[in-house]
Write a protein that binds this DNA or RNA. Structure first.
Length: 501
RNA sequence: GCCCCCAUCGUCUAGAGGCCCAGGAUGCCAGGUUCUCAGCCUGGAGACAGGGGUUCAAAUCCCCUUGGGGGUACCA
């Protein structure tokens, strides 16, 4: 079959090329039609059958998230935790938490606490643990001594007089069969003997990791691909200890917005920072899930349930991803739009109480009206606070650019006075009444409504952009609205006098 | 230095040799809706890093180069 087509190709390539390029194209087209489509159809069938059964792992899946408590839960760590969690939930497995606190200098209780809190906030519940490596010292010691007894490790004293146990590398070639990267081959000769038990009696990372993963019967190690280089050491340990290897899946790292390693200079890097900015946890989770994984179609907004259903390590890609705050904002906006007023009000209430805003006079009812008005206008609760500050304070902060452009103009005080006297007799200070009243005013004066909308907006909100003007006045209330108009008129008169217009 | 990983619009991604002069989303630009902004609707620009192979056919497979990332600790 293949020969036949090669023969065909040669004829057309060699003999007719010089004469008519079109002939070649036609020939290619024919070949394509004749031999291509059967292949396509066959492959489709084969692939289809391949796809069907590879998602469910048989046997009990056990995975872990193993942060070291040296700081807040990092965005990258959160995504690793999420993938482990999704994998466990998808396979009805166990997700356990292990705190790798073997660095006595840098580990803190506060960090552990912060990590647990962040996990809870994200909705990543664990089935076992948290286990603490610092509480398992005798186990590591036993295994380390066993390795020494076997001749796979030895005591080593450094220049400072500290004695540790070092593992003796001896395998020639170590192959890692990674679930996302495929086979990776390492030359053990270039890996130096490494410490497994430090002088202080604590295990080193690679050793503790192996001992615990084996002891906790971890079936799949899902972690950042910055650990790929550690894996041959760990495999060597498994081999020396006669333990069964887990499956490995090294997921791509999350980089900062400039493509370099995510660090403090990129701004927010911890889960708590996003919580404190007022992002909804589901939005962050959804965004994180799509960094290095996709469900395979064009769907971008997925509920936890959908993510669990669709998650597969097979669809995790190898390329590191840059964290894009702008897209997170969009996604967050989507979640906020799709969240009910009631839920948002509850979240906003807590958030406002923690902010610098005086919330003593706010009622839930009023707050829900505010949320309703701003529902599609904010990406996170901090933005809501910033946009609605003028509602809560007696001393409005005026944007100089806005006042210059819309207030400090000839005729503005007169217009505002007209507005003032038009709306002050209103009994029901609601959006419909205000709109009817002010539209009448501009119609009678023969001017466009926009002529008065912006000056009013700046006068009562201090800024040139806000929610609808009638709704804003309604929510602000008659008393406050009139007071702000009055103050603005007074101040403008003052300015007029000083400037001498 | 040595070892390892990675490479599709600015960004997140679809792509499993012919469905691709590459699809979606975001961001950007333009128009529409409108009292401003946001939102929403419509349209537009925008990518297979480069070079060699393999093949009738390559974004897809192989090699090299380049670029990015990681490791090389008694950190994890």
């Amino acid at each position: 079959m293949a020969d036949f087509f090669a023969f065909f190709g040669k004829i057309f390539n060699g003999e007719i090329r010089n004469k008519l390029v079109i002939c070649k194209l036609v020939a290619n087209f024919l070949i394509c039609v004749i031999c291509g489509f059967p292949f396509v159809i066959c492959e489709c069938l084969v692939l289809d059958s391949m796809y069907k059964n590879d998602d469910v792992i048989s046997g009990g899946v056990r995975v872990r998230f193993a942060p070291s408590p040296t700081g807040y839960l990092h965005i990258g760590g959160a995504r690793t935790a999420l993938f482990n969690w999704l994998f466990a939930r998808h396979n009805n497995g166990i997700f356990l938490l292990r705190i790798e606190d073997t660095d006595q200098q840098r580990s803190t209780k506060e960090a552990t606490q912060a990590i647990l809190e962040s996990m809870k906030w994200l909705g990543l519940d664990w089935d076992e643990g948290p286990y603490f490596q610092s509480q398992r010292l005798p186990i590591y010691k036993r295994y380390a001594e066993q390795l020494v007894a076997q001749g796979n490790a030895y005591y080593d004293t450094d220049a400072e007089g500290r004695t540790a146990i070092r593992f003796k590398m001896q395998d020639n070639v170590i192959v890692l069969n990674d679930l996302v990267h495929g086979a990776i081959t390492f030359d053990a000769a270039v890996i130096e003997d490494f410490v497994i038990l430090k002088a202080d009696g604590f295990p080193s990372y690679n050793f503790a990791c192996v001992v615990d993963d084996a002891d906790m019967k971890i079936t799949h190690v899902i972690r950042g691909d910055d650990h790929i280089s550690n894996t041959p050491k760990q495999i060597a340990l498994y081999n020396a200890m006669g333990l069964r290897l887990p499956e490995y899946a090294h997921i791509p790292m999350i980089l900062g917005e400039d493509g370099s390693r995510l660090s403090k200079r990129h701004g927010a890097t911890s889960v708590t920072e996003y919580r404190d900015k007022g992002y909804l946890p589901q939005a962050l989770v959804n965004f994180l899930a799509l960094l290095g994984w996709s469900p395979g179609n064009d769907q971008e907004i997925l509920s936890m349930k959908e993510m669990i259903e669709k998650f597969s390590l097979k669809r995790v890609n190898k390329t590191s991803a840059q964290f894009d705050n702008t897209k997170l904002d969009w996604m967050s906006g989507q979640y906020i739009k799709n969240t009910s007023i009631e839920e948002l009000t509850a979240a906003a209430r807590l958030f406002f109480e923690k902010s610098d805003i005086d919330t003593t006079r706010i009622s839930i009812d009023w707050l829900s009206r505010l949320i309703e008005l701003y529902h599609e206008r904010f990406k996170n609760l901090q933005e809501l606070v910033d946009q609605t500050r003028f509602f809560f304070t007696d001393s409005v902060e005026y944007d100089p650019a806005a006042t210059d452009k819309f207030l400090k103009r000839e005729g503005i005080p007169e217009i505002l006075k007209e507005v003032y006297s038009a709306i002050s007799p209103l009994n029901s200070f609601d959006r419909q009444g205000l709109e009817g009243c002010l539209r009448d005013l501009t119609a009678k004066a023969g001017i466009g409504f926009s002529k008065i909308a912006q000056p009013i907006r700046v006068a009562i909100t201090g800024r040139s952009a806000s929610a609808g003007i009638f709704e804003t006045m309604e929510l602000l209330g008659k008393e406050t609205t009139l007071k702000r108009l009055e103050n603005t008129i007074k101040n403008l008169d003052g300015i007029t006098n000083v400037v001498g217009l």
